[in-house]
Design a protein around this nucleic acid. Structure first.
Lengths: 311, 311
DNA sequence: AGGATCTCTGCTCATATGAGCGATGAGATG
DNA sequence: CATCTCATCGCTCATATGAGCAGAGATCCT
């Protein structure tokens, strides 16, 4: 279209050449107002694209859409870098920023574990808050792995806020229900579970339902177990509990052997912050968001767009 | 840097959220002026990138630099599309636009030939000018190829301007000097050459010095000839004449067998428009521009940047 | 320490810009 | 052919914005 060409010329003069709309009007024999209108159209049609390029940039438009569509309290969306990698770091940084800015500062913060949360912990600056007690929400890998395990992550978060940490000294999933009940009956474990359930804020991730899951990696489940769960409709796990697309527990037996706070607690919580990054987790992310497991979502642009697609 | 983060937030609120600088100031507890300054910095540092995405868009900044650096009368630079191809078409379109807008309209226009100029011809709209006589500048491929040859191109340009065309009925390069002289002595040929030399504007391209050259394709030279020319310093040809990086004729013997106007005419011309697209032609383009063979340059962004690199 | 220089801040004021409105004209419709 | 409808135009006016400047710190160099 002819009009479009004029729009391009006008946009060039305005944005590249820093001419005033008046000047452009004189130059192209258009009224000042016509120029202004063309500029508006050019922006609307996407001929003029204004982009904020920065690792810490956010996608406020997508955030707003997500909040509206899924009834969230807040959403944080960071642009996915072109060259694939770095997404996890950006999302983690954004989550750290969100935590740091969060008011009121929670007295106790319940955390799960995983690579994503580890990255969040590392991104938190020293002194991100003061006097926050960090509580583990679900059982996890052994305590003695120096900083690699679930414990290290919680410790880091607490340390950087000069706060305390309550670790959950239990495996994620036990082989027998009886053992699980016995462990939960243990004073120290029970106390932590109560503390966790009552946390003022939750920070958690979710895992996809495939062989790359941390549960397989740590030996709590076999690849075959996970496959079977997937066959029965599981899309991933939250706090070690495998759920289907509607957010329901897939295997109650398995769930009964899983140590950690109930998913209901997340749903009931005022502030339950869900952090997720990467294409593999779109399905489980959708479930978490649509079944109200989180009130705050921190994620990357690609995931955000996936969550906004119909159905 | 901390400052940078604020810049990003400010930019987001301003450009994505359409907030006023006042509002942003209130929100972030900054003075209105601070916000304005941050915005300016963000643009300067490239955190805010404003881009005009359109096949007909131009790179005015690069154009200005080229004009200044190389003492051109004008330059037209179009963005190179991401997905490689389409560059030729865009450049051709831009050249066509330039011709259409050119004032005063030349009475006679001298043209060379090549794939690039063919594309320019095809991009010219019907009635791009009126009464322009088109003259061929150099000998070329046979007349009978319907629209594929050099003749068709000139005819197209002339037809769309409701003008005449003067074809140069001669091969590009002859085998013997004597034949060349005989041909030039021919009334019809001589008349066209005079007309061409006196054209009010020139439109030409250049070819790289490699086996893909149109001269090889059309059998005027062998691949071995071209190789030898390159060895002797040739970077490409203009109007069939092979020149080195300084714009000097590489092989006077060969040049004496080449039919077409003298390169001096291009240098002397008020308006000699050089159209070039594609990475293969950077070297010859540089030569054309630095040795003042053209006064107007039409090209793609990649070539433009290459021409602006030091040395 | 004292002064000199530089940078940064918040201001005034002129200018650039967008919202809203009535006038105008092109095309549709009876 | 008359009239209606709707988009578009150029305008007024309120508002948003950038240039330029004087004062306040910060920094540097004897």
């Amino acid at each position: 279209m002819e009009e479009e060409l004029v729009m391009v010329r006008v946009a060039e003069l305005y944005y590249d050449e820093d001419k005033t709309q008046d000047e452009i009007g004189a130059l192209l024999k258009l009224s000042r107002w016509k120029v202004g209108r063309l500029l508006t159209q050019a922006r609307e049609r996407g001929i003029v694209r204004i982009e904020i390029v920065h690792p810490r940039a956010r996608r406020l438009g997508l955030e707003r859409e997500l909040v509206e569509r899924h009834g969230l309290a807040a959403a944080v969306v960071v642009p996915s870098p072109d060259g694939d990698d770095g997404t996890l770091e950006r999302v983690a940084q954004a989550a750290a920023d969100y935590l740091t800015a969060m008011r009121p500062v929670p007295r106790t913060l319940g955390v799960s574990w995983g690579r994503t949360l580890r990255a969040v912990a590392e991104s938190l600056p020293e002194g991100w808050a003061t006097g926050v007690t960090v509580v583990q929400l679900n059982g996890g890998v052994s305590l003695n792995r120096r900083s690699g395990g679930a414990a290290g992550l919680a410790v880091t978060i607490a340390q950087r806020a000069s706060g305390h940490v309550s670790l959950l000294p239990s495996p994620a999933i036990l082989e027998r229900v009886e053992t699980k009940q016995a462990i939960e009956a243990d004073r120290t474990v029970a106390a932590v579970l109560v503390e966790a359930a009552e946390a003022q804020a939750f920070l958690f991730t979710a895992g996809p339902c495939d062989a790359t899951s941390a549960h397989v990696e740590n030996g709590y489940l076999t690849a075959a177990d996970v496959e079977e769960l997937a066959r029965r409709g599981a899309v991933g796990d939250v706090l070690g509990r495998y759920i289907d697309a509607d957010g329901n527990i897939v295997d109650p037996q398995l769930d009964a052997r899983t140590v950690g706070v109930d998913l209901g607690r997340l749903r009931a919580a005022q502030r339950s912050i869900f952090v997720t990054a990467g294409d593999a987790k779109h399905d489980i992310a959708r479930t978490v968001v649509t079944s109200s497991l989180c009130s705050v979502l921190v994620t990357d642009e690609t995931t955000a767009r996936a969550l906004l697609e119909e159905r």
